[in-house]
Design a binder for these strands. Sequence first.
DNA 1: GATATAATTAGCTTAAGATCAAATTAGATA
DNA 2: TATCTAATTTGATCTTAAGCTAATTATATC
Lengths: 197, 197
Amino acid sequence: MQLEKIVNYHKALADPTRLRILLLLSEGEMNGQALAEKLNISQPTVTHHAAKLREAALITERREKNTVYFAQNRYFIQQHAQASLELILRKGGKEMTTTANEQMKSAVIRNFFAKDGRLRSIPAQYKKKLIALEHVVERLEPGRKYTEKEINEFIKQFHEDYATIRREFIMHQFMYREDGIYELNPRELWTRWEDVK
Amino acid sequence: MQLEKIVNYHKALADPTRLRILLLLSEGEMNGQALAEKLNISQPTVTHHAAKLREAALITERREKNTVYFAQNRYFIQQHAQASLELILRKGGKEMTTTANEQMKSAVIRNFFAKDGRLRSIPAQYKKKLIALEHVVERLEPGRKYTEKEINEFIKQFHEDYATIRREFIMHQFMYREDGIYELNPRELWTRWEDVK
DNA sequence: GATATAATTAGCTTAAGATCAAATTAGATA
DNA sequence: TATCTAATTTGATCTTAAGCTAATTATATC
């Protein structure tokens, strides 16, 4: 149910300790012990709050040796805020006139992505494929360095065939790779679907 | 404290019943009994939730005889959502270069309005006065009809001298009045401070 | 295998708050 | 004044969840 998701989003943010965690993470990723120390709370309490934030998809986690680093999931934080406003204020109706490109984009997203956000299939047509790839790659954090394993995990949230999609990311210059480390390219380098065909 | 306000905003929205109340109010104002019936809850429960929503400034109330009508406070709903995002994502820092007009506007708002949103004093300089008036009038709902009493109550949230400000609203075509009923003018009719001086 | 480090899980206490029925208050009208 | 209607307040119950300590698990290193 739509409503329940929105409630959970607000529940996740309706606690001062969790807000302070997100505030600290706005400066960059941090591990559990560091958070516990900075906030003067116990480690289990950090775990407790991290679980809530994770359930609401507001943070991501990365394990290195036996340390877990937490980071903001900025995309979903914004996404949920917008969804909440649209629900409450019923903004769904008012759409301005869109260009042909914008119509195409929303049609592709509607048709190729399920409600849970997963990619049903990789579009065969070039332009549509670029739209879908961009839609996925936009969820990565600019400036952050990812290991190949992390990239695979990230892509698997959307589609099983992570190898193909990872290759496409490089091929169309959404990302670059060096020594097995992946990083998002600046947007200007991306292959622009708007110009295709 | 900034953080506490944001927590309260999310607390107010972190309950399914309250979200459903706001959802119902998105279609227009409603009294307590009607809400209780629609939601299958008792009247005291409605009062309880209304108090929470009122504390977070997400609804407004209007008494007619012994019936209290509740309505969304759309301005503050949006305002808090934005403040929350800016806090969490630290968007405060990244400001684009503003024009002289925009700088003037934010300076006026900073200087003439207190942190609680009230107008310290009515600016004497014409352009600044228009900025302050617009800042207040923007909180009124477009399309809604207000009695003079309601307008007075509304203005009193910002400043004691509601008579002067109400007159200015009409004078500068922010609103028009007919048979004691006030309504917001479309923005195009407002006297534009951007063009002054 | 033994040890060290970081995180999680389990179990508990306590505080906050959602909800209701009953009693009270506020305002309007006969 | 008496009466009616809608809302609020009171007081009680029940649930959720924040926080802790202690125990356990996961991962890496000696």
